[in-house]
Design a binder for these strands. Structure first.
Length: 202
DNA sequence: TGCCAGGCCCTCTTTAGGGCCTT
């Protein structure tokens, strides 16, 4: 597969439209079946961390106070990933924050995200759950660190993506797994998945 | 005052409702 960047945000809540902000971001570069580069940073957006979020992520107000400004971090991570295709687990969530935080520094996004959750629903329909932790256990992939910290979650989403790619190649006989093909697969209705995959067989 | 996300996807659906998933 072409090089992609897998990203993960930790935030103060679920919706930038409701005033929630990013508190941490990680991005890992995946090339030739492995992670070859990593970026991770907490970020200070000048907001308080709700107690529920502190319990969930372990990220506290004290940690955020010492972090670089959100604008500086977003500029750095945006430079780090460049124009690579972006991947996230439940990408509709990370995409909202990516767009919202980039808009604050007058930057934008060119391409649609690839979503490892949507791909998992199609490639592993039999999995008991499609949340990241359950899929890591289901696919017997290594736990990269504490769940709900950006770098660990990005690393695990990357290993899940590689496992999904492997499944397409080995089980379904797909020869070339391009980002465009993954975007196609993740949107295809269930009853058309086999037909869509067949078009890429050797 | 009371409200408070939103996209995907299934089904006891399509003039809708509710669970899943992200923090």
């Amino acid at each position: 597969m072409e090089i992609v960047a897998v990203i993960d945000f930790e935030t103060t809540g679920l919706s930038p439209a409701q005033g929630d902000r990013a508190t941490e971001i990680a991005a890992v570069i995946v090339e030739d079946g492995k992670v070859v580069d990593r970026y991770q940073s907490l970020m200070n957006a000048g907001v308080r961390i709700p107690s529920f979020i502190e319990s969930l992520t372990g990220i506290s107000d004290a940690m955020i106070r010492q972090a670089p400004p959100a604008a500086e971090v977003m500029q750095a991570v945006s430079d780090f990933v460049g124009d690579l295709p972006l991947v996230a687990h439940n990408a509709s969530f990370d995409c909202k924050f990516w767009d919202a935080e980039l808009a604050r520094i007058q930057r934008g996004r060119q391409k649609d995200f690839i979503c490892s959750l949507l791909l998992s629903r199609r490639i592993f329909p039999q999995a008991p759950s499609h949340k990241l932790s359950a899929l890591i256990e289901y696919a017997r992939l290594p736990v990269a660190g504490r769940y709900h910290r950006a770098l660990a979650d990005a690393e695990m989403a990357a290993s899940l993506l590689l496992r999904l790619e492997e499944e397409l190649q080995q089980r379904h006989g797909v020869t070339e797994v391009s980002p465009d093909f993954l975007r196609q697969i993740q949107r295809v209705p269930k009853n058309q998945l086999a037909k869509c995959i067949a078009s890429r067989r050797r």
